[in-house]
């Protein structure tokens, strides 16, 4: 499996990372190199093997339905690039 420039651009778009032509040109061989190397996993026989779900045997604990957080708007907004009237503000989204 190999990626071409169009695929690189597509992935970059999915990942919301702007890429210049030069960056695409640099990424294409790099990604192909890495992906080509990863390809060797295909030779492993995994018949009947379940994908790993928990690294170390452990069971999920659940939280009680108690309100013990929130009410910290200033903290939540403290590092915002732009916050107005208690909201985060982002470039206008046209729906």
């Amino acid at each position: 499996m190999s990626v071409d420039a169009a695929t690189v651009r597509h992935i970059a778009k999915l990942a919301r990372i702007a890429v210049s032509d030069e960056e695409v040109a640099a990424l294409e061989p790099e990604l192909n190199n890495i992906l080509g190397w990863i390809e060797q996993l295909q030779e492993v026989d995994v018949t009947g093997v379940q994908p790993m779900t928990a690294v170390i045997p452990n069971t999920l604990r659940m939280r009680q339905d108690v309100v013990n957080d929130g009410g910290i708007r200033d903290d939540v907004l403290a590092n915002a690039p732009v916050a107005e009237h208690g909201f985060f503000a982002v470039p206008k989204v046209i729906e």
Partner: peptide, 21 residues
Amino acid sequence: AKLFSGAATEFGAEPNQQVSL
């Protein structure tokens, strides 16, 4: 509380007041 946090779910609060980290 919310599905994965302890913030309240009540309707009609001031903006971002029912938000945990």
